[in-house]
Amino acid sequence: MTIRDGTAKKKVFPLFRPELAMIWVILGVCVVFAGMSRVFLQPSNIMEILRQCSTMAILVLGVTWVISLNEIDNAFPDIAACASMLTALFIRNGIVFELAALYAILLSTLFGALTSVLVIRFQFPSLIATIAVSGLAKALASAIGKGIPIPVPSTAGSVIYSIVWGKVFGIPVLFLVAVALYTVSYFIQEKTRFGQYVYAIGENSQAVQESGIKRKRVMAIVFIVAAMFAAIGGVLMMGVLQSGQPKMGTSFFLDGFTVVFLGAVVFKMGKANVAGTLLGAILLGILTNGLTLLGASYFMSQIIKGSLLIFGVSVVTMSKNKQRGKAGVLTYE
């Protein structure tokens, strides 16, 4: 089931390899939706899907790395919310849109710095550290607008506006930006020492330490980058909604993890990876859009997403167990 699996050298037509199953799933889902709703396949709707899933994709780009490290980040939704509120606040105080976004992203990235200090210097479990940090971010987000959203005047004409709403040859600029960011990340993941070390730490931390690699530094960078991408996602979200939303985090929580773990099922069986995350985001975008078109309720989509997440996690765990081998395992394992 692995991309480099050498044992099962059955000749499989490359398009039907299991690691590409996700692409077939996406196509299948599209066919179903197209059959059920006439609007679904219209170009404008497809572009809308791409635009919508791009924000989510950017938001969880960093979380993908955290999961690769075998850690967890619970703070990203609230960091995004905080960044959106900060941007709105700065704009309301007369700062130019672009600068406001920049300041907000920089400030929100500090949450990532705090996480990495807690996890690396004080050895908090990453779950507890990020729960605490998310509490801080959530509180700050609410405090900025005294608990209510901050609307911003129309941002038409600014760079952010053209990123969020603009189109090039009919394709949303936002999607192109996401693809660009993912391409860079893909390069870092596949072609640099850093990407190599992230996976190595996630799989066998001891081997990494014995090799004299600066493990702590790698981890710190990952946590900070995760916060940064969450913040960027939050700012873009603000551009979409035309307001800073203190509570936008709640909806990202499940979606974010679902995207990352669905992504872990493709390309590198069982390992979170950026290319997979992008596909996962697209699949989730299609599902959300299609279900909305069909008039499915919140509860349906929540259950579908939760089931997908459990499915993703099961596959990941199974493939890890397969790598570990079965012989000599204790009866309770």
């Binding site: 309720s297 919140y298 939760g306 997440l309 459990i310």
Partner: peptide
């Protein structure tokens, strides 16, 4: 991760 998923399903069911 699994409890996040299960919790989300339960939350969906609450609707």
């Amino acid at each position: 991760i699994s409890t996040i998923a299960i919790g989300s399903i339960a939350f969906g069911m609450a609707y």
